[in-house]
Simulated scan of single mutants.
Amino acid sequence: MRDGFPFKSTACATAAACLLLGSQVPAGAKAGTPLRYVALGDSYTSAPYVSRIRPGSPLTCRRSALNYPGRIARKLRPRSFTDMSCSGASLRHLTAPQGANPPQLSALRPNTTLVTLTLAGNDIGFDRWKTCALVSLIDSEGAPCRRKLRREEGGDPFARAVARTGPRFGAALRRIRERSPLAEVYVLGYPRLVPPTGGGCYPRVPLARGDVGMVRNAQRRLNAMLAYQARVNGAVFVDMSRPGHDMCQRDDRKRWIEPFFPARRGAPLHPNARGAAAMARAVLRAMWFSADV
């Protein structure tokens, strides 16, 4: 498979031949269509502090040159590449500016052939984990954050937020399709923040034991919603929830997400360089490319 030309001809003689070719063909794409890549998303895409800021990007977006879109572009060498990701972005920033960053969908063109997207974490309130860390100091063995959120918001705010956000995310995928009908769209889920079982790793990650399950469930709901909306709206979901790479991992070679007090380059609760590389590899594998990034 030649770099820069990921899309194969749809004219396969047999289904088996298509499978062997590893075809991931956008609707209407033709053999040899130049790869034109647009990356959208929040800080899990921009990967703040993983590397130097991408030249020409807004400083407030903290868009690392070695984030996962940058690694994909370096591998595939597209005809054009635009990274619109920005720290703090939510779904509304697809159609509205975010400071100096224009609306992210403004980068899409009718001839765009690849779109990647990690978004909606801010829409469901990922920033609440900072509050959870603070209240864990008063009851590290209990569930102080769960009690606080339910007292202040009358129930599970994450379940309600995911339910509200799902239709909006689906509508965003349809807007992407309208603007770029040739594009293959890849929706990346969020890597695990905490281990799949157990009470976490307090105080290394300052989440009270009883609150770790709430974090786990909120992220599970979010990723399930993203997977569903991708499936029903013609996108490819890329699952990043493989266990063994969460904040609690002490081995730098295994950890993809930095804890509240980072040990490697990267923002707290965000992908480090290994995490960004893993996300790039996952997309490349979904496209049937070799994943040496």
Results as ranks from 00 to 15, higher is better:
Asp139His: 04
Gly154Ala: 04
Arg74Met: 09
Cys201Glu: 06
Arg192Pro: 11
Arg92Pro: 05
Ser180Thr: 12
Thr131Trp: 07
Ala208Trp: 01
Ala89Trp: 04
Leu94Trp: 11
Asp156Phe: 06
Thr131Lys: 07
Ser106Leu: 13
Thr131Cys: 09
Cys86Ser: 06
Ala73His: 03
Leu94Phe: 14
Thr112Ser: 10
Ala161Gln: 03
Leu134Thr: 11
Gly189Phe: 00
Glu141Met: 12
Thr118Val: 02
Pro203Trp: 04
Leu188His: 05
Thr82His: 09
Ala133Leu: 06
Val115Pro: 01
Cys86Lys: 05
Lys75Gln: 10
Ala163Leu: 11
Pro181Gln: 10
Arg192Trp: 11
Arg160Leu: 02
Gln98Tyr: 14
Gly200Ala: 00
Pro144Asp: 00
Glu178Ile: 13
Cys145Thr: 02
Gly125Pro: 02
Gly121Asp: 04
Leu207Glu: 03
Arg74Pro: 01
Pro206Met: 07
Leu94Ile: 14
Cys201His: 07
Thr131Ser: 09
Ser106Tyr: 11
Pro196Arg: 11
Gly170Gln: 04
Arg92Gly: 11
Arg177Thr: 09
Gly142Phe: 06
Ala171Ser: 10
Ile176Lys: 02
Leu137Gln: 10
Pro97Gln: 14
Arg79Trp: 08
Leu193Asp: 04
Gly189Val: 01
Ser140Gly: 04
Ser136Lys: 03
Ala159Thr: 13
Phe126Arg: 02
Ser180Leu: 14
Val205Phe: 07
Asp139Ser: 09
Arg160Met: 04
Cys145Gln: 00
Gly125Val: 02
Gly166Leu: 04
Trp129Met: 09
Val185Asn: 07
Pro78Ile: 06
Leu134Ser: 10
Ala183Asn: 10
Gly121Cys: 07
Phe158Pro: 04
Pro97Lys: 13
Pro144Met: 03
Ile138Val: 13
Arg146Leu: 08
Leu94Tyr: 11
Pro167Leu: 08
Thr131Gly: 08
Pro157Ser: 05
Pro103Glu: 15
Tyr202Gln: 05
Arg74Phe: 08
Arg168Ala: 07
Gly170Phe: 05
Pro78Phe: 00
Lys148Phe: 10
Asp127Val: 13
Arg175His: 12
Val187Arg: 01
Ala107Gln: 11
Val135Pro: 00
Gly121Ala: 11
Pro206Arg: 01
Val185Ser: 08
Gly155Ile: 09
Pro203Phe: 02
Ser87Glu: 05
Phe126His: 01
Gly166Pro: 05
Ala172Tyr: 02
Leu188Asp: 00
Arg164Cys: 08
Phe158Cys: 02
Leu207Lys: 01
Gly154Gln: 04
Cys86Ala: 09
Ser90Asn: 09
Val187Glu: 03
Pro157Trp: 02
Asp83Leu: 00
Pro167Asp: 08
Gly154Tyr: 05
Pro181Phe: 09
Ser180Pro: 15
Gly170Cys: 08
His93Ile: 12
Ala96Ile: 14
Ser136Ala: 07
Pro203Gly: 06
Ser106Trp: 11
Glu152Ser: 09
Arg179Leu: 15
